[in-house]
């Protein structure tokens, strides 16, 4: 069995760890707001619908992941648009889009014979296959996501507590809602390569939940969320190499274990 030093010297492991850490940072910060705003169902719906975006990309002859990013962001904006013009609850709207998105994905995949071999990669991720180009794109998008979250974090907090309260305080809640749904969709689509469509919700919930377990303030919640998200990404990738299992599920299992341990510690 290779030593840890040897494993870390492999270029594909180095790329995987760098990509995993970059994605972990953006999903960790975002997960604090996803858990606070009870948006896990939305994250699930967008991630599963990304399958349709990937299939559309392949059908149009463009790269599947950028196509998924564009598709997911439009779906996020569409969700808010319908919500603001309907009396139906947001859960119902997301439920409809969720079902329609995954159905479209499956329908399109059934028409693409060559695509089926890659299905496992899209469903469960393959961080070991990331390229330097993928890392560059993820880095740029993560910087955009972090600047957005740092700038809007106080507005997002106030608007979660009461929309009226935040409007009176001068916050443009309509813009805030559109932008937050779009940023969440962007983060989800960007993270598919690391953990895959099925497991991306885990990255958007587990770090925030751990942060809530350990934090005694909002700042501490974000801090612990970031620490455990990055720890899960690094250790999950290394464990996946030694156990010869897919890295996406390995990252999520490490995160879930940390959540269980911190929940027990908190109860004491």
């Amino acid at each position: 069995m290779d030593s840890l030093i040897t494993v870390l010297s492999y270029p594909f492991i180095q790329r995987a760890i760098i990509a995993g850490c970059i994605i972990a940072i953006s999903t960790a910060f975002l997960s604090v707001f996803v858990t606070l705003r009870n948006m896990s169902f939305y994250a699930d719906a967008i991630s599963h619908s990304a399958l349709a975006g990937i299939a559309i990309g392949i059908m149009l002859g463009v790269a599947p992941f950028p196509a998924a990013i564009v598709f997911c962001v439009f779906l996020g904006l569409g969700t808010v648009y319908i919500k603001n013009r309907s009396t139906v609850s947001i859960d119902t709207i997301i439920g409809v889009l969720f079902a329609a998105g995954i159905s479209l994905g499956v329908a399109l995949i059934s028409r693409l014979q060559e695509f089926r071999t890659d299905l496992f990669t899209f469903l469960f991720g393959d961080v070991l296959a990331v390229t330097w180009n993928d890392i560059l794109v993820s880095t740029v998008l993560t910087i955009v996501i972090l600047i957005y979250l740092l700038y809007t974090s106080k507005q997002l907090l106030l608007s979660t507590f009461s929309e009226d309260f935040s409007i009176v305080r001068g916050i443009k809640t309509v813009w805030l809602e559109y932008s937050f749904f779009a940023i969440t969709a962007l983060t989800i689509a960007m993270s598919i390569k690391v953990v895959g469509i099925i497991l991306i919700t885990g990255l958007l919930i587990i770090p925030g939940a751990i942060g809530k377990n350990l934090g005694k303030s909002f700042k501490q919640t974000v801090f612990w969320s970031l620490i455990f998200s990055v720890f899960s990404a690094i250790s999950g990738i290394i464990i996946s190499y030694y156990l010869d299992i897919p890295s996406g599920p390995s990252i999520i299992l490490v995160g879930a274990s940390c959540f269980i341990i911190t929940t027990i510690i908190r109860r004491r």
């Binding site: 907090l157 507590f161 009461s162 809530k212 005694k216 303030s217 909002f218 501490q220």
Partner: peptide
């Protein structure tokens, strides 16, 4: 407002 929707388990000071 009449009510704030603050999750009791969310640690904001």
């Amino acid at each position: 407002p009449q009510k704030l929707f603050i999750d009791p388990s969310f640690p904001i000071t």
